[in-house]
Design a protein around this nucleic acid. Structure first.
Length: 426
RNA sequence: GGAGGAGUGGCAGAGCUGGUUGAAUGCACCGGUCUUGAAAACCGGCGUACGUUUACGCGUACCGGGGGUUCGAAUCCCUCCUCCUCCGCCA
């Protein structure tokens, strides 16, 4: 959510960003509506505050009059205050109403896109920021996609997942389970080496937390909801990790804050059935190692590229062909200013699979979170938040299995062998 | 799940027979005096948000969250949440 003060000060910038995000021209008027509504809010508060001040003053006088035993005068003033109170009740409601309306409108305004965000409508218009500069792996014609490999080597049982839960809840077994566990430890260790503090957070969060990082109300249908306890299953570790700093005022010297955590992620993926959802390509539950940073606004873009380097290094160790794309305006997430996706080449499916998304949210999340720091003048300012996947397991597993298949079995990358305890799945 | 107790500023801790209490006091922190320097001592400052003001400042709201009583609530009432103690259950 953007601050109204920011919207007032950078109206042109925001309108331009809406254009990049392909907002309908008719919707541009929301910006002026917000400013107008905020004017009303301010005027109402000024008026209301004055009346409240009068009331407070009279109440104080009433107290004094009672002390002096002047009951009659006090009673008269009581009537006066009662009348004031009726007015402040009306104004108070009006103030509340305008605040709620303002909030509602603000929730509809996406983050301001970074100047480097390319113009475009969909993922097809994303800009290849760093391409795979070598030949892509070619497999024999009889090469198998990962769902067949999973069956052949008894690594993942999708049918059992269906039996136990439903589609999109894979069951890993044998070396499939071990590979899963190896990847988790490998990714966590890599993040640890890069200076991220490891966190094991709750996997279920309350409404305030879900709102803090923007899952509510934007992506309400995306989360599993436990109605009885009013809790949500996390769609990513970003939610609990970033919310550690909800309602927190940091010192400048606290930056950067670097956190990592492995969690399962649950996503309902409502409406995403059909295309490209076979095997591990799109599932309701998957494991992911997330990296989160809280940073000073001056340094957040350096940090973004540092995070990019980290993810890249991990992919290199796994010896997977990857490319980095910069998301275009039409594909950029609502809350993000700039996002780079990592895609890994799935040789059997002959397509790129998104395995990581690294974003700078600037102050969009921190405004909702009330995540601030004190600047050199001791004034509170909003911090910048960033996060990225490092990495998401399911699709990495898919690519690993497919790309490394040989007639003798599936080879495990050298960097991972210490974690799996085996060199080949056969 | 049952019974009782408690939630106050960065921390500790008063206030809780309703009326100069946004809140005593101590610690921590910041600035200053003193000192060769430091410590100690002393003096001063020290919450957040919104509104208003060129500015100094002023106003409003906030004492776990929400609601109520009252001219007036940190103080009374209701409700929810959290923590502590005891009992029960349990990996």
């Amino acid at each position: 959510m953007l601050q109204v003060s920011f919207i007032r000060a950078h109206k042109d910038k925001i309108l331009n960003s809406l254009k990049i995000r392909n907002f309908a021209v008719d919707d541009f008027k929301i910006i002026d509506e917000i400013i107008a509504l905020d004017d009303i809010r301010k005027a109402t508060q000024t008026e209301n505050d004055e009346l409240l001040a009068q009331g407070n003053k009279l109440s104080k006088e009433i107290g004094d009059l009672y002390k002096q035993g002047k009951r009659d005068e006090a009673e008269m003033k009581k009537n006066e205050v009662s009348q004031l109170k009726e007015q402040t009740k009306i104004l108070g409601n009006k103030l509340l109403e305008s605040k709620e309306q303002l909030q509602e409108l603000l929730l509809k305004v996406p983050n301001v896109s970074h100047p480097s965000v390319p113009v475009g409508n969909s993922d097809e218009d994303n800009e290849v920021y760093k391409d795979w500069n070598s030949t892509l792996p070619q497999l024999d014609d009889d090469a198998l996609p990962h769902w067949d490999l999973a069956k052949k080597y008894d690594l993942i049982d999708f049918e059992l997942g269906v039996k136990i839960t439903g589609s999109g809840f894979p069951l890993f077994r044998n070396k499939g389970a071990k590979l899963q566990r190896a990847l988790i430890n490998f990714f966590i260790d890599e993040a640890d080496k890069a200076g991220y503090e490891e966190i094991i957070p709750p996997l279920v969060v309350n409404e305030d937390t879900a709102r803090g990082t923007g899952q509510l109300p934007d992506k309400e249908g995306q989360m599993y909801y436990i109605e009885k306890d009013d809790l949500y299953l996390i769609p990513t570790a970003e939610v609990p990790l970033t919310n550690i700093f909800r309602d927190v005022i940091l010192d400048e010297k606290d930056f950067p804050i670097k956190l990592t955590g492995h969690t399962p992620c649950w996503r309902r993926e409502a409406g995403a059935h059909g295309k490209d959802v076979r095997g591990l390509n799109r599932v309701h539950q998957f494991d992911k190692i997330e990296i989160v940073q809280i940073q000073h606004p001056d340094n957040s873009y350096d940090t973004l590229y540092e995070m990019l380097d980290h993810v890249e290094g991990v992919l290199q160790k796994l010896e997977l062909p990857y490319r980095i794309v910069r998301l275009c305006g039409g594909d950029l997430g609502f809350t993000s200013s700039l996002t780079y996706d990592f895609e890994v080449y799935s040789a059997a499916q002959k397509r790129w699979l998104e395995v990581s998304s690294v974003s700078n949210f600037e102050t969009f999340q921190s405004n909702r979170l009330k995540l601030r720091y004190r600047d050199e003048n001791n004034k509170t300012q909003l911090a910048h938040t960033l996060n990225g996947s490092a990495l998401a397991l399911a699709r990495i597993v898919a690519a690993l299995l497919e790309n490394n298949q040989t007639v003798n079995g599936i080879k495990i990358p050298a960097a991972l062998q210490a974690y799996t305890g085996f060199e080949i799945i056969d």
